[in-house]
Nucleic acid binder design. Structure first.
Lengths: 213, 213
DNA sequence: AAATTTCTACCGGTTTTCCGGTATTTTTAA
DNA sequence: TTAAAAATACCGGAAAACCGGTAGAAATTT
């Protein structure tokens, strides 16, 4: 399949210097031709609608779109495009989430240059691509009950989570949302339970680290 | 040597792909010779102790050291080295803090390749280097009273901050540090005051966002 | 040596959170 | 149209946090 033909790759990452880095890295991989580099999801999508590409290197943190959603969307719109995630997030939850979303690989930005280059080559061969660190993470906890994943929060929970993070007390939240303080407390407890933490400060730290706030 | 005008540069950034990007970018700047690339603060410091360099491109988020402290330390140890910060943090506080710490420039990673290259050239000329976005940020709020900056925390405060962030209660912290709960509470209050926040969840969010935890 | 900062410690009182429950209504998905 | 999920609400009691103080000892800096 990939024998005779060069493989087209586009990269979406909001850091130009990272784009530059990948372009430089991929110069050493002859089969690859870089069809485009984009710092915004919208630009990348626009390009995709015009030109089919074989591989999409996708950063999760984009200025204009959530990388998780974007991954699923691209997957649906262009099933022929293999998506490889380039991310800083080394949380197991994030990785599995993206893979569920249809990503063909997950690389950490702190992977070595050699490793990244090799990963791209592996991707060309159709392999599932995971950088070393990622493999270690996935291998570590066999997905027991500890942290099942990034908790799925309801609309209300997200709302209340943000208000906690900005310093509102239960009473204040209740007043602002026109609901009973008891209700807020219930949500608060559910939040802590979902995150598997014991008090609000940890809840907020974890949520902040997961960029859920 | 060949020419006295060659300027030696080293780069410390925990993302190899970013290093690669800078190397690639700086290939176009003839006066520059890259003396080394490091993904850890310790490696960079080791190199510096052996070879004087003219410019240090320094990422704030390092695996083994806090970039802010590192900046100050390098500044003190090697006054001849100009330090240019390469960061993702676009908070005014962070920028001013680093500049106070002796940085000769502050660039955002999302700056364009052209802008980065030009910035390096400016740095060679001895200018204070700030990327476009950074200039806008600094120009925006003339440093009113709102948030003076990133609070300077004492050793004890950092320690307690981390323990709060990991779910320890005042009593637990006191027991672990062999000090009185009253003392812990005092530190806790001082922390909140320094950050200008009213409760622990916000404290932890802000500290997390500023990567102080 | 003097000044400043940091760390330490205490008190009383108020507010808020946390935990153990239970339980109905509304919305959403199968 | 049923399940299931989400949102709502309540209670009491214990634990923890927050506030406004004050203040001495120890370390650091000047």
């Amino acid at each position: 399949m990939y024998t005779n033909k060069t493989v087209s790759v586009i990269i979406i990452d909001d850091h130009p210097v990272v784009l530059e880095g990948f372009v430089s890295l991929l110069r050493n991989v002859e089969e690859v031709s870089i069809a485009g580099c984009f710092t915004r999801a919208a630009e990348g999508l626009a390009f995709l609608s015009q030109h089919p590409v074989d591989i999409l290197l996708l950063d999760i943190n984009l200025p204009d779109r959530n990388g998780i959603e974007l991954c699923g969307e691209v997957r649906k719109l262009y099933p022929g495009t293999r998506i490889i995630i380039i991310s800083n997030h080394n949380e197991r939850q994030m990785i599995t989430r993206l893979l569920q979303e249809g990503a063909a690989g997950y690389l950490l930005k702190n992977a070595s240059a050699a490793e990244l280059a090799q990963s791209i080559r592996d991707a060309l061969a159709g392999k599932l691509v995971l950088s070393q660190d990622v493999q270690v993470i996935l291998a570590s906890l066999p997905d027991r009950e500890p942290e099942a994943g990034i908790p799925r929060l309801t609309r209300r929970e997200k709302e209340i989570l943000k208000m906690i993070a900005t310093g509102h007390t239960t009473a204040q939240i209740a007043a602002q949302l026109f609901i009973s303080p008891f209700t807020v407390e219930t949500h608060r407890r559910n939040l802590m339970q979902k995150f598997g933490v014991g008090n609000a400060p940890v809840l907020i730290r974890v949520a902040t680290e997961l960029r859920l706030i």
